[in-house]
Design a protein around this nucleic acid. Structure first.
Length: 210
DNA sequence: AAGTAGCC
DNA sequence: ACGG
């Protein structure tokens, strides 16, 4: 049930430290921004340290961007594809992430990195932790756009029973505190079409990386 | 291992 | 379950 009047009316606590804000983000507002960002730094498939392709196509905006290659996972100020800085994070992105975090009990969130992931039907993302950031007191804000997906959450170890969370266009998940380092991933997407995004799911993940 | 294979 |  809703706990206080300051929470978004439809918020739902998935587990301690993880809150779902259904329909909190606006695809019609965000689409032109994402289109422009991807013209500057296109989505691309990154490689794991062992040389395997990450299925999802990724790019970033902000003063730091998450990358994976033969040297491992890390944040860089430069896009290795373009050789120049990642695009500046649009102010509407910062405000969306800051307000969502505030609603969920994480005031003054100032993201410096936004990982932009593009999924298509048939793709998944295996269980992982977001642990390449400097300050684990800062939450993660995840925005789902386009076709639906089933998100899953484990605990602090990459094993055991998962909690499923079905995510639709505009849904925002905030996780921090006791949930900051939980393993999570995305189940294989079913074929679908969205009026704004076509056959894609986009996910924006806001972090305080540095 | 932010992946893939393979068995149940 | 996996390899270096």
């Amino acid at each position: 049930m809703t706990q206080t009047g300051s929470l978004f009316s439809d918020s739902f606590e998935v587990l301690p430290g993880m809150t779902l804000l259904p329909g909190y983000a606006s695809s019609s507002q965000l689409r032109p921004l994402i289109t422009r960002l991807c013209e500057a730094s296109p989505v691309r498939q990154m490689l794991t340290q062992r040389g395997q392709k990450i299925q999802v196509h990724m790019t970033n905006c902000g003063s730091a961007g998450w990358v994976s290659d033969s040297k491992g996972y890390r944040y860089t100020p430069i896009d290795p594809l373009t050789g120049t800085a990642w695009p500046t994070m649009p102010q509407p992105f910062i405000e969306l992430a800051n307000r969502a975090a505030d609603l969920c009990g994480f005031p003054n969130f100032e993201p410096d990195a936004c990982l932009i992931n593009r999924y298509e039907p048939g793709l998944q993302m295996g269980a992982h932790q977001d642990r390449n950031e400097q300050d684990f007191t800062q939450p993660i804000v995840s925005v789902s756009l386009g076709i639906p997906a089933r998100f899953f959450v484990l605990g602090l170890e990459r094993k055991g029973t998962s909690t499923p969370v079905d995510l639709s266009d505009g849904d925002v998940v905030v996780f921090g505190g006791p949930a900051r380092l939980v393993y999570h991933g995305v189940r294989k997407l079913k074929p679908a079409h969205d009026p704004i995004w076509g056959p894609y799911r986009w996910n924006l993940t806001f972090r305080k990386a540095m």
